[in-house]
Design a protein around this nucleic acid. Structure first.
Lengths: 343, 343
DNA sequence: CGTGAGGCTGCAATCGATTGTGGTTTCTAG
DNA sequence: CTAGAAACCACAATCGATTGCAGCCTCACG
């Protein structure tokens, strides 16, 4: 690897001082140097293939132009769009993102967080919010800038960018109500996530408003397996016989699909199912899934925008951005059965 | 933001020289300092909440402990597992990854590449290989370390980590042959990708070996839309009437699903379909998709391993790692119809 | 008791850029 | 013609860590 050209090399060849080279090459300061000199410097720089060393620059300016993005798991399909949204806002502004996965472990989150602090990231975007999310609290104490995305974290004073989950659930229930359903189950996610609580509460409220009998069941995780086993226990153990289920998210809904299939029940003839998130390819499932579309990409964009605002204006405005969601009706919901197959 | 403690602060409070602090805090050099002094330094460091500034360290040691990962699009479901595989190897070794998306554009790839060079990344992992992939060539000229993952790039002397695509296709064709299919279409990806070529050639060879009539059709992209429109033209325009189709990847296969459905053909009764990659939730499609599982996570791990080897041993061993694939038989393939519905 | 060998630690240079300060030069205006 | 102001650029400090070199101290051995 041929040693990269430094600013000193350029200065020498252009016959000027390194400081002048620096000024000539930076938009904000190039006015301070004679136009002719500047163009000579630029010519030499190009000739030498000079690229500024942003490590060195970062040391001096104490800004690394990097952002830490902490998510639970990149292979969970809702996160790639969020990450891309973040990146799409960051990249044009000269920022780069470190994306790390915690796999839901607070311990690894802490480790990764520290390693990013060490790397002098200018701020964080947390997609890992949950009740008792200590890292965000600590980060705030240490004066670190951050925003929460997708999930809120009660008690943490960072801005949060979330979808209007309550509205999404309400529309789901109304949709099912219009189809004649009067007994609906809600498979809720883990109670430590704000999303689970918001959705469950909205479900209960909507059912009450519409005079629908709604029961809430809690899944230990937002996963296909959890959805399946909870639905199994609803069908086998509980006395409740729903004609429709509103799942806490698409993964849980998929688990419900599996459970229903194994019980010989068909969707939506016997039971209607609605998911949440509209993950990629949700329309290609068997049957295509009715679900609530959350604008994940935009969630990412907004969170990045908020963070950069904080960083550049250094104003810690505790804000909260809620983006609208949309019910996507596909084939997993249909009219309530006249004679429910299991009555 | 309270100014972070520096090594000088620790030195002052511990009553030693900054150099000593540095030595006391680094595994490799802590033997050079008195055990008692070292522990005192460590105590002070903890008390002050000192975290080394890796920007400063990077400047001095000229190694940033970061890797650039260049992929086409994170929302393409094959990439998250690759990225996680990379990360799982990098993180425990103190490296962090910058993941960037090119959206298939060489121009933005170039931009992102330069910005990462500027950030002094220690190496690159390219998942964007294609014929005429100039960036990798240039990078090599400049003595930059890198490896290619998933896709190969002919003519670029970097190591490549790929799946055994030829074997996967061969197994697909054999599987269909055993089911009695004698007319099979292959929807190939863009010819600029090595994967497309390898798979198409393997398809032709396998058909020849088994005495099956195989026709290759080229899709302009690895996307659902492309798959659908190519399959449309096969069904409508071409004289060829396949009873099965081997798609270049799962996205194309999904497009084939759509096309078939719109033509009133059912899978696998009328036409069998096999995909490639076994993307997440491929088993939940309608019908569950028979496809070739590529070990994407391991592809990522291997590529990171190769890269770190290169970096740490500084030996440019042009290697090639091929990982085994596996045919996953689900419900999109079945016996060839006795009387093909469209003859 | 002298000396050589380690063991420890301080000193200062260094990585590559940015930026406040100040000195020349040139130009303008009175 | 000269004072004052720009305009331009060089100088050097600085960011926070790492590391070769050298010095000091202690200890052991002759």
């Amino acid at each position: 690897m041929s040693p990269r050209a430094t600013i000193a090399d350029v200065a020498r060849l252009a016959g000027v001082h390194p400081g002048t080279v620096s000024r000539a090459l930076n938009r904000k300061t190039e006015g301070q140097v004679n136009a002719e000199t500047a163009s000579r410097v630029r010519a030499v720089a190009k000739q030498l293939g000079y690229v500024p060393n942003s490590i060195a620059r970062g040391l001096r300016t104490s800004s690394s132009m990097t952002i830490g993005v902490i998510i639970p798991d990149l292979t969970n399909p809702i996160f790639p769009p969020i990450v891309r949204g973040i990146d799409s806002h960051l990249a044009p502004r000269g920022y780069s993102a470190f994306v790390v996965n915690t796999d839901g472990s607070d311990a690894t989150e802490r480790l990764l967080f520290e390693s990013l602090v060490q790397r002098q990231v200018d701020g964080f975007i947390f997609a890992t919010g949950h009740s008792g999310h200590s890292i965000a609290g600590e980060a705030y104490e240490r004066g670190i800038r951050a925003v929460m995305v997708n999930r809120d974290s009660r008690g943490v004073p960072y801005p949060a960018v979330v979808g209007d989950d309550a509205q999404g659930i309400r529309e789901s229930v109304e949709h099912l109500g219009r189809l004649g359903h009067r007994r609906i189950a809600h498979i809720a996610g883990p109670p430590t996530f704000s999303t689970s609580q918001v959705r469950a509460e909205a479900f209960v409220a909507a059912c009450a408003d519409l005079g629908i009998r709604g029961e809430v069941f809690r899944a230990p995780a937002y996963s296909v397996e959890a959805g399946q086993s909870v639905m199994d226990s609803v069908l086998d153990g509980s006395g409740f016989r729903p004609t429709a289920v509103v799942a806490g998210n698409d993964l849980l809904a998929l688990g419900v699909y599996h459970s229903l299939r194994l019980h010989g029940l068909s969707i939506p003839e016997d039971v209607s199912v609605v998911g949440f998130n509209d993950m990629p390819f949700a329309g290609d499932f068997q049957p295509p899934m009715t679900t609530v579309r959350t604008p994940h990409f935009d969630l990412g964009v907004e969170s990045a925008r908020l963070l950069l605002n904080q960083i550049e204006s250094s104003a810690l405005t505790a804000l909260r951005v809620m983006l609208p969601v949309e019910l996507i009706v596909r084939a997993s919901t249909g009219p309530a059965p006249e004679n429910p197959s299991f009555d």
